[in-house]
Amino acid sequence: MRVHIESSGRLHLGLIDLHGGLGRKFGGIGVALKEPSLVLEAAPTDELRSEGLEQERTKAFAQRFFQRYAPEHWRLSGRGAYLRVFKAIPSHVGFGSGTQLALAVGVALTRLYDLDITAADLAETMKRGRRSGIGIGVFQYGGFIVDGGNIENSHCEATVPPVIFRYPFPADWLFVVATPQVEAGLSGEAELTAFHELSPPSPEAVGHICRILVMKMLPSLIERKIKPFGEAVTEIDQLVV
């Protein structure tokens, strides 16, 4: 038996609420891309092997999966998997490669051993979605995604953000993506630390972002009006920065 998984990269179009005064923080806006994309295959074996592209990260995600779920599921006892990435999303350039690879590995192993594990549970196991649920939403549903942020305070750990809006993105709307030849951006714990060190915006600025999202971006998407949609993307980007 072999399991074949495909997923796509994403563009993150902005964060909604870095203030957090209502008890939730972040909240994301994003869209699935046709390319770049990920193609992964998995087969059952008695040991864990990774070949092809992204071998180290693929194996690390698989090890995390077995460490988390093997004690609870007898089907995983003494088992491994052969994993091969045929096509990979470029890492650390804004396409969400880590989340897509982590979920692809998790879903492949879940299907391989006929387990009932949700994408949200996999995301928590793989430590994804701590700031944005866009990558998880894109993996599950594709299209245009808005997530509701996560509950993050001193009394509980960050939760996987819920998808609060999903809509098919027009196939004839294109993005021109340029990747500058510069040092890779922050990721992992360094990225998380940088977010926590940011000065929070005012509630008024967050309210302005929400107004643009609800009263301009979303209606423009549904009515297929590309000009005001693009204006909304730019306006939110300028406010977030």
Score class of each variant (00 low, 15 high):
E41K: 03
E183D: 14
V85W: 04
F169H: 10
A108V: 11
A32G: 08
L109T: 06
V3E: 07
A104R: 04
V240T: 06
S77F: 15
L115M: 12
V240L: 08
R57L: 07
E41T: 12
C156G: 02
G149P: 05
V233R: 04
H12F: 04
R24V: 10
A194F: 11
Y167D: 01
S97G: 13
T118Q: 08
A205R: 15
K87D: 15
L112A: 07
R128P: 11
E204V: 08
L103Q: 00
F169K: 06
L122K: 02
L38F: 02
M1G: 10
F26P: 06
I212E: 04
G96E: 02
H208I: 08
A119T: 08
I226T: 11
T45A: 07
F169L: 07
L13P: 01
D114E: 14
A43W: 13
G148R: 03
F165S: 00
F195V: 08
T58D: 11
I145Q: 05
E235F: 00
V31G: 00
L15F: 14
R10G: 11
P203N: 02
M126N: 03
D172C: 03
L218A: 05
L122W: 02
R10Q: 03
D116H: 12
I136A: 12
F175Y: 06
H196F: 04
H73D: 09
I212F: 01
F144E: 00
V107T: 10
A32S: 09
L186K: 15
L40T: 04
K127E: 12
F195N: 08
A81K: 15
